[in-house]
Design a protein around this nucleic acid. Structure first.
Lengths: 217, 217
DNA sequence: GTCAACAGACGTACAGTGTACGTCAATCCA
DNA sequence: TGGATTGACGTACACTGTACGTCTGTTGAC
């Protein structure tokens, strides 16, 4: 009986592994991600993964690059600030859904998709008429803002698992006297003040600053 | 012989453990940090650590707060922008020397020292005459810049362990044709262009933007 | 001075991790 | 028809965090 091939087990591949791993990290966080768990998810043995992935570190790098590939790069040719804003917004969305990604992003060498994205950002800034120095600095400012701001947002959210009232209430009761400004800030967070695209607000601060610095020189 | 007490083994304490752990992470990175290695460094058994530290996670939180305690908070009363610049510069220095800290920073709830620092930042911004909304947003922008920018710098440095020429050379040879803007950017990095306090440049972009937004409203 | 209570250092043990290595079936090219 | 190659898999090992129990030095009450 050479049969017995139940549903013709589809073969493993780097892409299939990476997709499974990203899905798992989205759901359970990257600290719970284990080679064995990914193997279970794919219905294969652990060591089979190593035929397509050098090691866990490289797999994580591949996962980050898969996320980078989801980001829509900015369009070249039109209003450069609008293009940057639109692309940054998609990056923000993508990094928020893959909430484990920002922490990995900065600590790893960029993969192909991320390099493609970096090149697109630099392309737009270069075509914007900025001085080469401002392109260089503006690129760092914008990318820093995208991942840094998102990272901060995620950290804030993580602190708020469980009952929001309880946690903030206990905090305020304990520390409001000693740290009044901090307490007011927490209050503002809870009240949802200052909302309305905080991400975009800081981005505009940077983009407008670049524009002004360019005009002033 | 009740003697035999070589140099009267000094007792363990949370502070001693935290200092040893920070020193170890500074030297070998936080991914190499192990309870056993810290115990070895302190000349005690592994489980003795758990008399002073609940678990590894809490130890890492304590380490981050020890780093936060090193940062000089901004002075209240004088020129608020100058105060923020000065404090941000010390924060930048501290986070660069403890190169493992920025990645942990955002993902953890703040400890006492960090709360004290946050309160000081908010205090200065509040006294600066900014609207409460701008205090709220400006605080996020500044803190995001401090840890995000440093994180990016550290990631860039890490990619450059080993021969810098080799790595960048290979990269440029492979990708310069497909990604010319990226290649130019790497060239600028290698040439050291655009230096002269990039960190402060972006910070000023933010601070000036806040000032202008406040005046304009 | 004696003894009970306690705090803290330590060893052992266990479940879980990444992955090196060897085996073996299936597939492909001559 | 064969030999070579690929990829899936099991076993094994060093190493992780930490639960649990033990032992020892110190302290406080009488």
């Amino acid at each position: 009986m050479p049969v017995e091939s139940e549903t013709a087990r589809q073969p493993l591949s780097t892409q299939r592994i990476l997709h499974a791993a990203v899905g798992f990290a989205d759901e359970h966080g990257v600290e719970a991600l284990t080679m064995r768990k990914i193997a279970d998810e794919l219905g294969c043995g652990v060591m089979s993964l190593y035929n397509h992935v050098a090691n866990k570190e490289e797999m994580l790098a591949g996962m980050v690059d898969l996320v980078a590939a989801e980001i829509v790069p900015p369009a070249v040719g039109g209003d450069w600030r609008e293009a940057m804003r639109a692309s940054a917004a998609t990056a923000h969305d993508v990094l928020l859904t893959h909430h484990w990604a920002p922490a990995e992003w900065s600590l790893r060498m960029p993969g192909p998709a991320r390099i493609r994205y970096m090149d697109a950002l630099l392309h737009v800034l270069s075509e914007a008429g900025l001085s080469s120095e401002l392109v260089y600095r503006g690129y760092h400012a914008v990318t820093m803002h995208i991942v840094g701001f998102t990272l901060q947002q995620i950290g804030y959210r993580r602190g708020l698992t469980g009952d929001l009232e309880d946690l903030a209430g206990a905090f305020l009761a304990d520390l409001a006297d000693d740290y009044p400004y901090m307490a007011a800030h927490v209050h503002a967070h809870l009240a949802g003040d200052g909302h309305g695209d905080e991400f975009g607000f800081v981005l505009d601060l940077i983009l407008d600053g670049l524009d002004r610095a360019n005009a002033g020189s």
